[in-house]
Design a protein around this nucleic acid. Structure first.
Length: 265
DNA sequence: ATGCCTTCCTGGGGAAGA
């Protein structure tokens, strides 16, 4: 079973690139973030046509998450378990943002998250980020108590270590690498979850995001913020992880690259 | 450095991203 996460930065603008990636790499489960689409604008038929069954949690203009499952490979699901964490956005009266989707796939619980960016720091958006991370931690503890194999994947918007970024100095004031952001991420690992990429690449130096600006891609000025966290049962099945880096270099690419984990059966 | 680029929503230019 191969579980992938991909912040696509707009499903309408990215549809040809996204379908290309699915057909070339054929993940069993693909968790998407920043679809930037309302529920009724989601192109489910486009995915069905290439053998993927989808569920989605959309929002106008911003955010939005989705989960695709390879029906051609006879994977069952996604059977939705939950959408949203029940936490309002940082602006008064805006309600909850579309950032969380949880479903069962072949007996594995898959959680797709788009964690708040938190910039500028300090401020209400940063406070929202930290509150969201604490709520996520609570939900992960609930799933842990169910003793179901689980992968929590997505755009965490956290650079866990200094060796996960091209220049810690250049990013020092960013919400992605504030000590509070890192501490909240570390608590998830301390709870027993395994960072799949870190486990197989303990020295860092692997990027999943390159900014559109300042020639970041050409200069390899990237960092790692897209993560795959595994419950103990899935960590025991960890076989390989990777970044589909070449997809970042294509025409009309997202600023994130897809990241995946291969699990033994 | 309120910069750089890209998307969305909308038909001009602002918000958001990281």
């Amino acid at each position: 079973m191969k579980i992938a996460t991909f912040n696509i930065n707009g499903i309408k603008a990215r549809l040809p690139r996204l379908k290309e990636w699915l057909e070339e790499t054929r993940p069993s489960v693909a968790c998407l973030q920043e679809i930037k689409s309302q529920d009724d604008g989601f192109p489910a038929g486009e995915f069905e046509a290439i053998g993927y069954q989808a569920i989605w949690h959309g929002q106008k203009s911003f955010n939005g998450v989705a989960m695709l499952v390879d029906a051609k490979a006879s994977f069952t699901g996604p059977v939705e378990v939950r959408r949203g964490l029940g936490i309002d956005g940082p602006n008064d009266g805006e309600g909850e943002q579309a950032r969380y989707l949880e479903a069962d796939v072949n007996g594995v619980r898959v959680v797709c998250i788009y964690l708040p960016n938190g910039n500028p720091h300090p401020g209400p958006k940063f406070d929202y980020k930290l509150a969201w991370m604490e709520r996520l931690r609570e939900r992960m503890a609930e799933i842990w108590a169910e003793e179901v194999p689980c992968a929590v994947v997505g755009d965490f918007n956290v650079i866990p270590h200094d060796d996960d970024v091209w220049s810690p100095k250049a990013m020092a004031s960013d919400a992605l690498m504030q000590p509070e952001s890192r501490a909240a991420y570390s608590r998830l690992l301390a709870d027993g979850w395994t960072d799949a990429m870190r486990t197989l690449n303990p020295r860092g130096g692997v990027w999943t995001y390159w900014d559109y600006q300042a020639g970041a891609w050409q200069r390899d000025h990237g960092f790692r913020i897209d993560h795959l966290l595994l419950s103990p049962e899935l960590a025991d099945r960890l076989e390989a992880v990777g970044v589909d880096k070449d997809h970042r270099g294509r025409e009309k690419a997202s600023d994130h690259a897809p990241v995946w984990v291969q699990l033994r059966n």
